[in-house]
Design a protein around this nucleic acid. Structure first.
Length: 475
RNA sequence: GUCCCCAUCGUCUAGCGGUUAGGACAUCACCCUUUCAAGGUGAAGACACGGGUUCGAUUCCCGUUGGGGAUGCCA
């Protein structure tokens, strides 16, 4: 049997991190088995579905590199099939019209709650003669769920889960306006799409029992279920849109790489021994449902940062310049050919120190900053009169270094420090401040070579004569 | 309230009856060193609790506690 899985988000908001992981697991499972990964937009709730949300979901998946197979299925376009299925169930006596009004239902629930009884539809219209229907009230169609016995779900992640059928009430299949609900449309679409495995968040575990019964009623065996645990926020509470959950676009803006997101998300709930850094290719090869853990995981930015830093270092320098360039330009730095070339050359030292693309752009800014270079507070403080004197004294030797290489520059700088009778650090930090405007940077001589002789001399002259403006910031 | 799920270092996890309970992130020390990273070495840090089963439980069973989810004419 060839594997067909699907990711089925509802377009009521952006693609959040939990959905992204569900999509990733589905995608990996499909790729591992050489099957298909289908995308289905569950937009049966026309009021809450938006085109913007659909676009955000497609964008998010594309950015994450989770390409889907075949056409996107829009559930709203399949209403006729859903309605026909409901009709068949009514004709077969497996579903019935219910005339209870929303108000009555609400009162029913309130009463059940007050009396501390299970909150469930009481089945008023299940066996009542439709002839008793109130005039002018359009009914909903409800599923005639089994009253006793049990429904057993053999879940690939959660194991065997048994539900008492007495707990399952008669769910609404068709709303009063004739539109299908999620419960109906998922099952009909899963059948029509030939879905073999349903991998989704375990907030649907309860629904699995209802779905399984509907599959049976429609004459099909349910697919294999795999309900994966939810992701929680750092405080252990459910990660929701009003509780720290961000759309994948936010992670992109925060400077995370898609391959890092895939690796990090994969390790949230899935493991392969002690492996931490797992390439996507390797993940496809290894991924299996059995290795999915059953307990919920908390989202941890520090770990994500660490994984991201790893993948950042793996990226080619030119890639990183292309990714950081928009950020630098947004910060007001104009990037011509010369600046871009300078950045590519400087990237090995920069990328080793960055955790995100945002970090990277910030720490790269000094390379493309126009003179005179602004100094941050610490750098300004460091460049006192003594430091400036040392810079002035060392300048001629550095300006004359030939060839202009890291080795030659280092030799010259060390000789200059010695000539001045100070430790190398006493000269190095002022040089750093003068050249980068900060007290923290990549290796000094790497910076010099990256900047080029002319720029180095200019920046040192600026600093020695106190031409740099101070930056207001305090880091 | 009712139903369902979960429970190993702060966090992510390995473990699938007998281990000095392993790794990663974070933390702390030291090394390297021109700063910061990276890298290296090391430290500290966990089986929620109570009953069983067993020669032996982190591991199997039951309960307690604690989290989470579901209880919609949302998905």
């Amino acid at each position: 049997m060839s594997v067909i899985v699907r990711f089925a988000p509802s377009p009521t908001g952006y693609l959040h991190i939990g959905g992204a992981r569900t999509a990733l697991f589905n995608w990996l499972y499909a790729r591992h088995h050489g099957g298909q990964f289908r995308l289905r937009i569950e937009d049966t709730d026309r009021q809450r579905s938006t085109d913007a949300a659909i676009a955000a979901i497609l964008d998010g998946l594309t950015w994450l590199g989770l390409e889907w197979d075949g056409e996107v299925v829009y559930q709203a376009e399949r209403i006729e099939a859903h309605q026909a299925a409901a009709q068949r169930l009514v004709e077969a006596g497996l579903a019935y019209p219910c005339y209870s009004s929303p108000d009555e239902l609400e009162a029913m629930r309130a009463l059940a709650k007050a009396e501390k009884r299970p909150i469930r539809y009481d089945g008023t219209w299940r066996d009542r003669d439709p002839a008793e229907a109130p005039a002018g009230v359009p009914p909903v169609i409800r599923f005639k769920a089994p009253l006793d016995g049990v429904t057993v779900i053999e879940d690939r992640v959660q194991g065997r889960v048994t539900f008492q059928n007495s707990q399952l009430d008669d769910m609404v299949l068709l709303r009063a306006d004739g539109t299908p609900t999620y419960m109906l449309s998922v099952v009909v679409d899963d059948i029509d799409m030939g879905i073999t495995h349903i991998i989704r968040g375990d907030d649907h575990l309860n629904n699995a029992a209802r779905h399984a019964n509907l599959f049976q009623a429609l004459g099909h065996e349910p697919p294999v279920f795999a309900h994966i645990p939810l992701i929680h926020g750092p405080d252990g509470a459910k990660l929701s849109k009003r509780h720290g959950a961000l759309g994948v676009d936010a992670y992109r803006d925060l400077g995370y790489l898609p391959e890092a997101m895939r690796n990090y998300l994969l390790r949230l709930g899935w493991a392969h021994g002690d492996e931490e850094i797992i390439s996507t290719e390797q993940a496809v090869q290894w991924f299996e449902l059995d290795a999915i853990g059953r307990s919920p995981a908390r989202f941890d930015f520090q770990k994500l940062d660490s994984v991201n830093a790893h993948y950042l270092r793996l990226r080619p320098d030119a890639d990183l310049v292309a990714l950081a360039a928009p950020l630098l330009e947004a910060a007001g730095h104009e990037l011509g050919e010369a600046e871009r070339a300078r950045l590519v050359q400087a990237m090995p030292g920069l990328k080793q120190r960055a955790r995100t693309l945002v970090d990277l752009a910030q720490s790269a800014a000094f390379y493309v900053q126009a003179r005179p270079l602004p100094l941050d507070a610490k750098a300004a403080k460091l460049l006192d009169a003594d430091a400036k004197a040392r810079l002035a004294a060392a300048l001629p030797a550095l300006a004359a270094v030939e060839p202009f290489t890291e080795e030659a520059l280092e030799a010259a700088a060390r000789a200059a420090a010695e000539a001045q009778g100070v430790g190398f650090g006493k000269l190095a930090q002022p040089l750093r401040a003068a050249l980068t405007g900060r007290t923290v940077s990549p290796g000094l001589f790497e910076v010099m070579v990256g900047l080029g002789r002319e720029e180095v001399v200019g920046r040192l002259e600026d600093a020695a004569s106190g031409r740099n403006p101070a930056l207001q910031q305090n880091d």
